[in-house]
Lab assay of single mutants.
Amino acid sequence: MISLIAALAVDRVIGMENAMPWNLPADLAWFKRNTLNKPVIMGRHTWESIGRPLPGRKNIILSSQPGTDDRVTWVKSVDEAIAACGDVPEIMVIGGGRVYEQFLPKAQKLYLTHIDAEVEGDTHFPDYEPDDWESVFSEFHDADAQNSHSYCFEILERR
């Protein structure tokens, strides 16, 4: 099963200049909980913004210009990325925008964090048809001392 995991502000903004323009430790914990011990696929820009392999996960970098870091697996196509994951129950696609666009048609599940923030962004989550998805989990949280904005975790499964 292919799943996408993303944090989205208003207007589906997911990033600005290779960074997330908010401070939500709870979302980072949600991300870790849902990706640990699963292969993660990301684009080169996302890889560069993280700066290191995510521990406890097979890191697969999709790029037309593969790098030389041998701590991760470099691939040039969506099919190659899927094959590099091996026989696993769930593959997690973690961004960025172009990689989400490439995998959305193949995805069966979306793990979304909806952030109540209007922020400037240069990267967006692809538009998706809500009628194609069923919400199977939703959990709202107010902003607090650690988390700069209110947010809602949601899991959607393709109908």
Rank of each mutant, 00 (worst) to 15 (best):
S3N: 09
S3E: 03
L4V: 05
L8N: 01
A9P: 02
A9Y: 02
A9M: 02
V10T: 03
R12E: 15
R12Y: 13
V13G: 01
V13F: 05
E17A: 06
E17V: 01
M20T: 01
P21I: 03
P21S: 09
N23F: 05
N23T: 08
L24W: 02
A29M: 03
A29V: 04
W30Y: 15
W30T: 06
W30K: 09
F31P: 05
K32T: 04
T35L: 00
L36N: 13
L36V: 03
N37C: 05
K38I: 06
V40R: 01
V40S: 06
M42G: 02
G43V: 05
W47Q: 11
S49A: 12
I50V: 14
G51Q: 11
P53T: 15
P53W: 14
L54C: 03
I60F: 14
S63Q: 06
S63H: 04
S64K: 14
Q65D: 12
P66C: 09
T68R: 12
D70C: 14
R71W: 09
R71G: 13
V72R: 03
T73N: 09
T73L: 13
V75G: 04
V75M: 11
S77R: 14
S77Q: 14
D79N: 12
D79P: 13
I82Q: 05
I82E: 05
V88Y: 13
P89N: 09
I91Q: 04
M92S: 05
V93A: 07
V93T: 04
R98D: 04
Y100W: 09
Q102C: 12
Q102F: 14
P105E: 09
Q108I: 06
L110F: 06
Y111I: 10
H114V: 13
H114S: 12
H114M: 13
I115W: 02
D116S: 13
D116I: 15
E118N: 15
V119K: 05
E120T: 12
G121W: 00
G121Q: 00
T123C: 04
P126S: 06
P126K: 05
Y128G: 03
Y128W: 14
E129W: 10
E129N: 07
D131W: 11
D132C: 07
F137T: 10
E139V: 09
F140L: 13
D144C: 05
D144F: 03
N147E: 05
N147P: 01
S148A: 00
S150R: 09
Y151I: 10
Y151W: 07
C152K: 12
C152Q: 09
F153W: 04
E157M: 08
